[in-house]
Design a protein around this nucleic acid. Structure first.
Lengths: 121, 121, 121, 121
DNA sequence: GTGGTCTAGACCACA
DNA sequence: GTGGTCTAGACCACA
């Protein structure tokens, strides 16, 4: 279900956070479903338990999962997640547009590139 | 001309690389113009010379500047720089579009966001 | 396994890069094998860790090794390395031939020298 | 007659040495002909006189020119120069062949590359 | 423990 | 003076 890409330059815990959020977004992990325990996931992925712990802590901080002490980690309600993700994407678009403007890339060029990507890739 | 943003999480040498590329792109540094010497820039920014050295070395590797031993660092011809920068921006657009598609953001929504940013921000 | 030649005029980090590439080429270091840590290799060779770090960074930039943060450096897939090396050699042959032509050394003389070296040395 | 290539990574004095040797080899500078004075050449090339001085010193050390104190620098007899140059080229061929052998490049491949370069480039 | 960045300071080749 | 390399040692993020 989860794989680590070691050629990815981002830290492992960050990849984990993204992967799990994605599993929730695409519906493979449902609200209130229990996540694998830190130990199990650690051995499964042959990763240091500290790393899993850190990823779970970050997910909790973002309100994506909730922790029940002594029992485990559970998927939180997804209502916000989708909206959050969309906002995040919009933020990224804003950033890239600003950069494009500075580089004298016209609105038309950007839209053309967007269209091309939507159709092909 | 150049300032370091210590709240920026990226390493100093990387910020320097970007700042200098930018100064070239906007025309404040012209081809064959001499860059401030490693030592001078180091004292000016109260940064260790090694860090400046590292930034200059990276810029040379990218072909943005050229080094004449014992004389100094000079801005290279900018022909490629502009094209490279545009390609970089297109790559970023591609990445964000892929992410948007996965999140079920429609092409129309992306284009709307792009248009909004171009007009306002 | 690795030794530094202090009579060699090239910088240490460059020697290290070449030595490690060679160990991979001759098969003593295999893909996905872990390289000695920066600190360990540094003490082993009585060299400053920074110098090892620099060599490893250059090897990563060339795609010869890959880094997993917090875990270590690993040998990358060698497919390209061999092809790259052959291309490099061809480039050198081209350069020397151009020089030979300028010096009025005939093709026959060059080939004779090549043959002699292949048979003897 | 002489130009400096600042994109060449070799030090300037080394380029000067090679350029002057070349002018002698191709007959543009004849035995006992006087070389331009250090000062004149320095201003002509907008180069530090120290650099010219160093190049001339190196040429004298190699026996390519001779110095008459208070009068100037003169081209030495060329007899050896040609032979020396050929030997140098042979040495380089030897080095590249050794490298090729280590990389399992066959004699045939090397000769093919040599032939190709002689015919085309 | 592992790599990444940075400072402080030395020494060298080159101009 | 100019860049290039290296040592010694610190501190940080990550596993």
């Amino acid at each position: 279900m989860i794989t680590i890409d070691y050629s990815d330059r981002r830290p492992i815990y960050e990849q984990l956070v993204d992967k799990i959020k994605n599993l929730i977004l695409i519906g493979l992990l449902k609200p209130d479903e229990q996540l694998p325990s830190v130990r199990i996931l650690a051995t499964e992925l042959s990763i240091n338990p500290n790393t899993i712990q850190r990823a779970y802590a970050e997910l909790e901080r973002q309100g994506v999962i909730y922790v029940v002490k002594g029992r485990g980690n559970y998927v939180a309600q997804t209502t916000n997640l989708l909206a959050q993700h969309k906002e995040e994407i919009k933020g990224k678009i804003e950033a890239i547009v600003e950069e494009a403007k500075k580089a004298n890339v016209t609105k038309e060029e950007v839209i053309e590139e967007v269209t091309k990507c939507y159709d092909k890739c």
